[in-house]
Every structure is written in structure tokens, then in C-alpha cells.
Design a protein around this nucleic acid. Structure first.
Lengths: 231, 231
DNA sequence: CGTTTGAATCTGGTATACCAAAAAATTCTT
DNA sequence: AAGAATTTTTTGGTATACCAGATTCAAACG
């Protein structure tokens, strides 16, 4: 028995397609078409779509094709607020619960991020970003609260694309570097209040940056929407 | 087209069965058996099980029947901590975002809870408890942050049974009444700090109470496990 | 030429049939 | 009689076939 990795596998593939922009917001995800494309049956693909729907990456509509979610600014801000609360809790708990090894690992991620951040361009940006995500995920796991880590991961996944667009900017990269460093320092000194403050600052800055991105998007031509629907 | 209410319908039925204790923690949920019992096919039942799994009510195991989750004390405490963070955020946001009507509705729920709390016994306890849940849900919705409300609801659902066992106790009922009142006062005066503090106290007390319940359960015979497996 | 109506088609929802892996039971061996 | 190996059964995973609602496009009517 294969323990149903297939649905999860498909979900993973779709997730990447969505986040990389291959599947643009608003695009329909038709059960039949995608199933034959991937060479699988509709059943597991259907299940995969449900998984993504729970994560908020796709939107189910009654009697309609599911579509790739296209969150509004408010929705993104709402999600970041929740993420912030979750991550602050993670950081505070991590101060108490994390092992030294775990904190060392977080520092390591921070430094790898630092090293890559200055030079990265093109495809390396994706790697940079994945390290960024791993950094935050590691903090959530260091809370030793699996439920928290899981929910945190779900929110992170949901906003992957938005965060990616934000993190890629040069000016944001500078800021992220120092903020990550501050968070690590707080963890190393096991200072929950400081960690909370730093994470708060970090994610508050993210909200500001995302807001700016959305405003840019509304004026000027679009960075996130693909051009295919103009064809 | 029926917009797939079937799976959701089944999930709802199973959820109630689990929470009322008809399906005890550890019980397997076999696809075939339950499907024929409910007179539906395996496909929607399977989907329903996945929904409950995402909510944390059932536990999927590779190559095994899913079983009704039987959370340990640590897991419950972990979940309540997350719930607390979510609910504090809800309360703080509600102070800023909620309409007067929404706050009035929350007060109404608090008062209905109060009225029922003193006299309720037997089946009325379920109604009492549903009002309790509605109270907390209303606060989450009053945050005007749908993502937050949804995640909060998921955590609430996950711990329905534990909270039920806690809320039914006479001594807990007394405490809950005054704490609800305090939260409402904070909302009415639009005082985020106070609301945060009160919710914190409320849920911290819940953790204490749940811990006590678990200790009781470990000594003496079991209140939550049904007796069927001794047959 | 515009509007309306109906049929063809596309979509997701549901049921069922089949397969492989894991548990359980039985039997064969020692 | 005890243990191990094999066979049988049970379970979930996957594919496929069928159904009903919704959309859309076209033709006919005003």
C-alpha cells in the first residue's frame, strides 16, 4: 500500500506551480485536464486540490472549477497578522523550549541567508527564499509545539507567493538580514520579550512592504498576473 | 450538481459522533463499514475523513484505518496555547473593528450562557456548551479577519470534546461566567489590553482545569474512554 | 439585429470495481 | 505444544464509469 503519497505528491507539484507563477491567480484547475496532464486519475488529483484549498492556495467554488486563489490586499494583511501572532508565540516558546542545537541551526540558516542575500540573482533567488522560509519554519519547530508549527507552516505556504515577491526586492533584502540577526540574538539570549518584539517588527515591516507592492501593482502594469489571458 | 455537501454532511455527522463520545478516542473509522452504515459510497466518506483529519479530530495512519484522535495532555495544552494566541489577537482586533451590534451580540451570548449556566443539567449541558462555543466564535468573527476566524474555529473544533468535559464541571461553570463577563466589558469599553488580559486568564484557567481532568483520568477509571474495548 | 430559449458540452460529484500491502489466522514444521 | 511461514482476509489507494447541474453557443423568433 502506498499510503497515499500520490495526492500529496500532486499537491506539492501544484503548489510549486502556483508559487512560481506558472499557474497564475485566477487560473482554473480543472480536474480532468490536470489529471490527464499529470498522468494520474481524477481521484488523487481531486484530493490534492482539497489539500491546497485547505491551505488557502486554491479556492473551491460550488459547481465551478477551483481556481488559484488571488488574495486581495486585505486578505494578505489579515493572513500576515495571524502569522505574526503565531510566530511571536513560536519565538517566545522557543526561548524556553528549544535546545541549543536547534538555536544553532537557526543561526546557521540565518547566516546562509546572509551570505546568499548579497549576491543572489535569478534562479538563486528561489534558493535564497527557501532558506528564508526554512528560517521561519525552524523557529516554529523550535517551539516544540507541533500544532503551532503545523499551523504556522500552513500560513507560510499560503503566502509563499506574496512573500516571494516581497523578499526578492533588493531593499527588502537588506532589512531582512538585520532583522533575522536580531531575532537570532534574542533566541540565543533566551529573551522572549526581545524575540517577540523583533518578530513583530519583522512581520510588521513585511505588511508595509506588501502594501507597497499591491499599490505598485494597481498602478502600472501587473507583476503578478501572467499575460496569458490577453492572448 | 450538489456542490459536494455530502462530504461536508458526513464530516458533520462524524464530528458530532466523535464529540458526543459515540465514537471514542482510539476507535477506528473504517472506510467501507462506515460508508455502508451511512448508505453512501466510500468516496465522499473518504473525503469527510480527510476533512476531519485536517481539523485534528481523526488521525490518519499509513496503511491503517484512521482512528479517532486521542490527544495527550501535552497535545491539548499545545493546542490551547495556540488557541489562546489566536483568541487574544481576535479580541484585540475586535476592539478596533467590531461594530456595536456585534459586541451587543456577544454580550447577548454571554447573558444567555449566564442564564443557562446555573440551572443546566443533562442534555441542556450540550446547549449550554454550544452557547459557550458560539461566544468565542463570535469574538473571532468580530475581528473582521476571516482567516483568523477560520483558524480559530478549527482549533475550537479540535478541542470540542476536551472543552466539553471541562465546561460541564460545576466549579468551572462559575469561573467561566465571570470571565466571560470581564471579556465583554473589555470589548464594550474597546480596551484591547484588558480584553487580551482577560482572554489570557480565561484560557490559562482552561489549561489548568484540563490538566486536572487528565490527572483525574489517569488515576481512577476513565471518564472519556468508552468501555467497549473491555468486552 | 437583438433577444431568448434549448440543446450540446463541459464540469465536478458520486458510485463502483480493482489492486497492493499489511494484519490476522491457520497450518506445517520442529 | 510452540514457533515460524504461508495463506487468507481486511484495509486503504487508485482508476474508471456514470450522473446531474451549469455554462455556453447557436439557432430561431420577435
Amino acid at each position: 500500500m502506498t499510503a497515499s503519497p500520490l495526492a500529496e505528491q500532486i499537491a506539492q507539484k501544484l503548489r510549486r506551480d502556483i508559487l512560481r507563477g506558472k499557474l497564475a491567480p485566477g487560473d482554473p484547475i480543472k480536474e480532468r485536464d490536470n489529471a490527464v496532464d499529470l498522468g494520474v486519475s481524477r481521484t488523487p488529483l481531486r484530493e490534492a486540490v482539497r489539500i491546497l484549498a485547505k491551505e488557502g492556495l486554491v479556492q473551491l467554488r460550488p459547481a465551478r472549477s477551483p481556481i488559484v486563489a488571488d488574495p486581495s490586499l486585505k486578505e494578505v494583511r489579515d493572513a500576515v497578522m495571524v502569522l505574526k501572532a503565531l510566530e511571536i508565540l513560536s519565538g517566545e516558546l522557543a526561548c524556553r523550549e528549544a535546545s541549543d542545537a536547534e538555536i544553532a541551526e537557526i543561526r546557521d540558516l540565518s547566516e546562509r541567508h546572509l551570505a546568499l542575500s548579497e549576491t543572489a540573482e535569478g534562479d538563486a533567488l528561489i534558493e535564497l527564499f527557501e532558506i528564508d522560509m526554512a528560517f521561519h519554519t525552524a523557529i516554529a519547530r523550535a517551539s516544540h509545539n507541533p500544532a503551532l508549527a503545523e499551523t504556522h507552516a500552513a500560513y507560510l505556504a499560503r503566502m509563499w507567493r506574496q512573500r516571494y515577491l516581497s523578499a526578492v526586492q533588493r531593499r527588502a533584502r537588506e532589512r531582512v538580514r538585520t532583522q533575522h540577526e536580531n531575532i537570532v540574538r534574542g533566541l540565543e539570549t533566551r529573551d522572549p520579550a526581545r524575540v517577540g518584539t523583533e518578530i513583530d517588527a519583522h512581520l510588521s515591516a513585511l505588511i508595509v512592504n506588501l502594501t507597497r507592492l499591491f499599490e505598485l501593482r494597481e498602478s502600472g502594469r501587473d507583476l503578478t498576473t501572467n499575460e496569458k489571458d490577453i492572448e
